[in-house]
């Protein structure tokens, strides 16, 4: 199983980072492969490539602001949550993600 994660917050300094860390940790615990992109304040240090997105079963978007580069996600399964929810409940987010992947 492979998941892409895009987090976005106001300044791209605290929230996006913290949510990314929380979800990544939880995903690694469960043995799920995960690629992370953090956005906010114009900063996209690691940009997910089209190949990475195509290869993943699902894209999780944890956002407090609109994300850029939406066109890359066309046709993918998307789980849309707020960044503060993802930060507090990484378990619930991944549960939902797995449920969504298994639902055909």
């Amino acid at each position: 199983m492979k998941i892409s994660l895009i987090t976005a917050c106001l300044a791209g300094v605290a929230h996006s980072k913290m949510a990314a860390v929380a979800i990544k940790k939880e995903a690694l615990l469960r043995g799920i492969e995960i690629d992370v992109e953090e956005q906010g304040g114009h900063k996209i240090p690691v940009r997910l490539t089209q190949e990475q997105i195509n290869a993943s079963d699902l894209v999780i978007i944890a956002k407090a602001v609109s994300i850029s580069g939406k066109e890359r996600l066309a046709g993918k399964k998307i789980l849309d949550v707020t960044v503060s929810f993802a930060l507090r409940n990484p378990k619930t987010v991944l549960d939902q993600a797995i449920e969504l992947i298994n639902k055909k």
Binding site: C9, L10, A11, G12, G40, G41, H42, K63, A64, V65, S66
Partner: peptide, 13 residues
């Protein structure tokens, strides 16, 4: 709220 925050996010720099 989301739209407003997006605007602010681009405004900050």
């Amino acid at each position: 709220g989301l739209h407003f925050r997006t605007g602010v996010s681009y405004m900050l720099p």
